[in-house]
Simulated scan of single mutants.
Amino acid sequence: MNKLGVIQVIDSLDAGGAEVLAINIANALGNEGVNSHLCTTRKEGVLKSNLNKNIDFLFLGRKKSIDFLAIFRFKKYLKKNNIGIIHAHTTSYFFAFCIKLIYPKVKIIWHNHTGNYVNLKGFKFFVIKFISTFFDGIINVNEELNTWSIKKLKHKNSIKLDNFPQFINKSKTTKLNGKDNKRIVILASLRKVKNHLNLLEAFNSIHIKYPDWTLHFIGKDFNDSYSKKIKQFILQNGLEKSVFLYGLCLDIEYILKQTTIGVLSSNSEGLPVSLLEYGLAKLPVVVTNVGECSKVIENGKSGLIVEKENSNVFAKALEEYILSVDKRCSLGNMHFKNVEKKYSQERFIIQLKNIYTL
């Protein structure tokens, strides 16, 4: 790889899969001796504390989609630090495109984490297709997105690259409620696409039979209408002493050590970092059959996979684990071995360096 620097660009460092991965990549490249940087365009965010001290950080405070002050400040930063590659995550592709227009020598690699992009139509699709012609490469987190990039965007340098998990924060601040060995956890910000309500319905249906088990939501609460529905469901069904919301937490490793089952009830996914983190923690998992989830758990060999938006089958899967300690231990260990083997940092960085030299 050449001596030019690389900068990860993302809107913010609020907790989320793409944000976690952007930090993990910046840190991993820095550890490899690469001139590695990270930039947030709109806000900083709590995950900034997970960034290694040897990684240079730039916050632009962009106020609107086309912010000339932020654009020219970023260009100046690129030239000053000899940065030749912009690795743009999720929606930050538009900002990277603006930079390319005034600084065409820089390479743009777009990292598409958003499974829902395959459903884009009309004007939004036309815009992203046009902008993609300025990208030197596209990284997709699952096969469906990669096929979309090749067939729909018709991009010649499109590749699928699996995410990798890493526990950086070693603090132990979040003490979970409930009894040991009887905790179910979901790592997902309170967004509609994560469908916490489906999970709540499943949990509620088995709660009478297994009242000692508790459910724990870890992720940013946006205090919007969706968040309100979640809290109303908890109150209306008398689950206040069984379902707990913790908001944004950084000590994920410590949290997962306190839990028994990891779940995701999403309607759409790319390749969720949280599912890989469950693997690092040796948790047995129940996940919906979306994005790359089924591949991660080997089509059910190292976890339980259920159809999305079906609380009945989700409840049955949870009960299967609740009734069998052996199954929990067996599938949890298998999930760990699979993640360790197929989703390692070393493997990711080798492939990433090859992409950067496109």
Rank of each mutant, 00 (worst) to 15 (best):
D212L: 08
K194M: 07
S205Y: 01
N195Y: 00
K192N: 05
D224N: 15
H207K: 13
H207F: 12
H216Y: 06
N195H: 07
K194Y: 03
R191G: 00
A202M: 10
K209F: 11
N223I: 13
F222E: 11
E201W: 01
K192V: 12
N204H: 09
L199Q: 02
K231L: 12
N204Y: 01
D224C: 11
S205M: 05
L215Y: 04
L199Y: 01
N223W: 08
S205R: 01
L199R: 01
I206G: 02
H207Q: 14
L197I: 15
K229D: 10
V193K: 11
I208V: 14
L197Y: 02
I206C: 03
S205E: 05
K209E: 15
N198D: 11
K194N: 08
D221V: 10
N204W: 00
H196P: 09
P211F: 05
G219Q: 14
F222Y: 15
R191I: 12
N204I: 00
N204A: 05
L197V: 14
P211D: 07
I208Q: 07
N198L: 03
F217M: 14
L215C: 07
F217V: 07
K229C: 08
H196N: 09
K228D: 09
F203N: 01
T214C: 08
I208K: 10
K229T: 14
W213S: 03
I230S: 08
A202R: 04
S205H: 03
F217G: 04
G219T: 15
D212F: 02
L199D: 01
I206S: 04
D224T: 15
Q232A: 11
N198P: 05
L215D: 06
Q232D: 12
Y210F: 15
K209I: 13
N204S: 11
S225H: 14
Y210V: 01
D224W: 12
D212T: 10
K231W: 03
V193W: 04
K231D: 07
I218W: 05
K192H: 02
P211N: 10
H216K: 08
N195L: 05
V193N: 08
W213T: 04
K220W: 08
I206H: 06
F222A: 08
R191F: 04
P211Q: 09
Y210T: 01
L200D: 00
L215W: 03
K231E: 12
S225V: 15
L215V: 10
I208M: 02
D224M: 11
Q232H: 09
D221K: 14
I230L: 12
H207E: 11
H216L: 05
S205G: 04
K209S: 13
S225N: 14
N223F: 13
S225Y: 13
D212G: 02
L200S: 01
T214E: 08
D212S: 12
N195E: 11
V193T: 14
N204D: 07
N223M: 10
S225W: 10
H207S: 13
H216T: 09
